[in-house]
């Protein structure tokens, strides 16, 4: 049967490796998604993913169900992201990964849809690049909160649990992020 998180955690705490794997695989796409949006670099996102789940592995034994597992996991994820320092890499602005670019071009090649024309594609990439550039200029917390709210769709209440901050604080960061982004991207939407 499909086991609940609680069952899986109990099993994993007793050394059941497959239960631990299942817990990881149940949530890892979201963790990777948050990490990738935050660092905008595939290798860095993998590093964050690894660090997050190693911390989960280390901490699971002591997990006491005082919060949802997912809340705890995403709290670890946001902490790791916020403290992440790129090792030996330049601070990158958004770049369209080569693989992703190739894939996107391949997709375009197979369709007559005008909305996916190469011009549209380049324009879109430039647009994404601008958005990421603007995101890079936010403080780490502003950026994280904006990503969680806008791109991942979490409720403010959930974000406050993840970041262990009050809802008022989250709103404050969100407003600041919104304000800064609007300033920087004004040409794109006005």
């Amino acid at each position: 049967m499909i086991l609940s998180d609680i069952d899986l955690i109990n099993k994993a705490q007793n050394g059941d490796e497959s239960a631990f794997n299942e817990l990881v695989y149940r949530y890892d796409r979201t963790v990777l998604s948050i990490a990738l949006k935050y660092v905008n670099d595939r290798d860095d996102a993998k590093d964050i993913y690894q660090e997050v789940f190693i911390r989960v592995f280390r901490g699971l034994k002591k997990f006491q169900f005082k919060s949802e597992f997912s809340t705890w996991l995403y709290r670890i994820t946001t902490n790791v992201c916020l403290t992440f320092i790129r090792a030996g890499k330049k601070q990158t602005m958004m770049r369209i990964d080569n693989d992703m670019e190739t894939e996107a071009i391949d997709n375009i090649a197979g369709t007559d849809d005008e909305s996916n024309s190469p011009e549209e594609f380049l324009l879109r990439n430039e647009f994404i690049s601008n958005v990421n550039e603007a995101l890079e200029k936010l403080s780490p917390k502003q950026k994280m909160i904006f990503i969680l709210k806008h791109f991942e769709g979490y409720k403010i209440r959930e974000i406050s649990q993840m970041l262990n901050s009050s809802e008022g604080t989250i709103k404050k960061y969100l407003f600041e992020a919104n304000h800064k982004l609007r300033d920087q991207l004004s040409e794109l939407y006005v």
Partner: peptide
């Protein structure tokens, strides 16, 4: 839409983890 992890990236992340 910002970058979403594709299956390759997820597989690599799992393998490395």
């Amino acid at each position: 839409p910002l970058s979403e992890p594709d299956q390759n990236l997820l597989s690599e992340a799992r393998r490395e983890f």
